[in-house]
């Protein structure tokens, strides 16, 4: 299973996906460096901000917690499809999804 990540330079990267791990952990494992994820996924910063561009039919994302919404709200680049990638766990129906790394704050 895989998903595609578009980095800030516009390049597309195919990422091998591990089910049950967050998108952040999957992206980090793939060697994509521009996602800082400073707090390591403990929902204490917003340095793993991404956009969900294309979600396969049938796939559902967990809804945002209030804390995630609040952290995202701080971004100058907030969009309706913004997520913190540490808060989205990869599940099989997401196979083939496409995400974009948000601009550097």
């Amino acid at each position: 299973m895989q998903f595609t990540v578009k980095t800030r330079d516009g390049d597309l990267h195919s990422v091998e996906a591990h089910v049950g791990l967050s998108l952040m952990e999957n992206i980090r494992s793939a060697g994509i460096e521009e996602l800082l994820a400073i707090c390591g996924g403990s929902l204490s910063c917003a340095t793993c901000h991404i956009y969900i561009e294309n979600l396969p039919g049938g796939a559902e994302l967990s809804s945002k917690s209030q804390d995630e919404e609040d952290l995202l709200e701080a971004s100058d680049y907030l969009k309706p499809n913004s997520r913190l990638s540490c808060q989205v766990v990869f599940q099989p129906p997401m196979d083939g999804m496409r995400i974009v790394v948000a601009p550097d704050e």
Binding site: L21, E25, R28, S29, G31, C39, G40, S42
Partner: peptide, 24 residues
Amino acid sequence: YDRPALSKEYLAGKKSFDRLQLRP
């Protein structure tokens, strides 16, 4: 590896060391 997790998720047994590695 992710050092702050030592006194949190790692000590609690909620995250294995593999998941703390900053890079594979």
